[in-house]
Computed example of a mutant assay.
Amino acid sequence: MTKVDLRLNAIVDASLADVADLPLLAAQAVRGGATLLQYRDKTASTRRMVEQAMAIIVAIAGSGVPLLVNDRVDVALAAGADGVHLGSSDLDPETARRLLGPSAIIGLSVKTAEEAHRAALAPADYACIGGVFATTSKDNPGPPLGIDGYRLLRKQLHADRPTLPVGAIAGITEARIAPLIAAGADGVAVIAALFRSGDVIGTARAFRSAVDAALSERSA
């Protein structure tokens, strides 16, 4: 499996188009210290998604930061992205791995104990547990997990696969980073708190610094 740096996973969502062009936002996040990028669009045509993904790849060229496409293996293949992030209703990770190859990054969303168990057994490179807190960036049908719920799911996932990197998503703020890292998160996924902050580069730096400090404290 490919080693993935989950410390700061910046999700460039199509809903951010009112802030700035997505490739510009992606480049700013990378400049601030994002270690992983996701491009997410639930409504655009396949052609538009491929164009956007390719533009983001150009914008972050030379940074070494991988770009994943949310949900869409076909778009990732067509655009030459580094991999995909898949939800429970998307293409299964086994088929995604066969199509994308051994070096692609495959991430999985985890919301339940059953999904945690499946993720641990799947050919995935990381999992992201959430939603941890309430968020306006995406509709989450169930109630937020909270810190305790996150800790429990992470423990269940690691019971089956102790070395799988695990991130946290939904409602992440700088103040919530340290408790999440203490609860076992290897990093955080952010959308609104980063890209609607008014200072993407500065906010990314602050988030990355908070993650690094919390990880250092956890390993001490």
Rank of each mutant, 00 (worst) to 15 (best):
I169S: 03
T2M: 09
D18I: 14
L37K: 07
A17P: 10
D199C: 09
V211Q: 01
Y150V: 08
L91H: 03
G80H: 08
Y39G: 04
G142A: 15
R40T: 04
A61W: 11
K155Q: 11
L86H: 02
Q38N: 13
M54E: 14
A26W: 09
A134D: 14
S89Y: 13
V65D: 09
M54T: 14
E51M: 11
P141K: 14
A55T: 07
A210M: 04
A79E: 08
T95E: 14
V58D: 15
M49F: 11
D160R: 15
K42H: 08
A44E: 03
A159N: 11
G107N: 02
E51A: 13
P165N: 11
E114V: 11
G171V: 03
E115F: 00
R208T: 13
L16Q: 08
S209Y: 13
P23S: 07
D18W: 13
H117P: 12
P165W: 05
N9S: 04
A220E: 13
G171M: 03
P93D: 04
L8Y: 02
L36P: 12
V166G: 06
A113H: 13
A210R: 02
G146T: 14
T135M: 06
R48N: 10
D21P: 11
G142E: 12
R47D: 11
G33T: 13
A192N: 15
K138I: 01
L157G: 01
L86C: 05
I169F: 07
I177N: 02
G32I: 00
V19I: 10
E217F: 09
G62C: 07
V84M: 05
V73P: 05
E51Y: 12
R218A: 02
V200W: 02
Q156P: 15
E115P: 00
D186Q: 06
I106L: 04
L180F: 01
S103D: 15
K111L: 13
T2C: 14
L194Y: 02
V132Q: 08
A204L: 12
G131A: 14
G167T: 07
D21L: 09
T35D: 09
I147M: 06
Y150A: 05
Q52S: 10
K42S: 11
D82I: 15
A189N: 06
G167E: 01
L194G: 06
G80D: 09
I105S: 03
A206K: 08
R118I: 07
C128F: 11
A189C: 10
I129F: 02
K111G: 15
E94S: 15
A61H: 05
D148N: 12
A76P: 06
K155C: 15
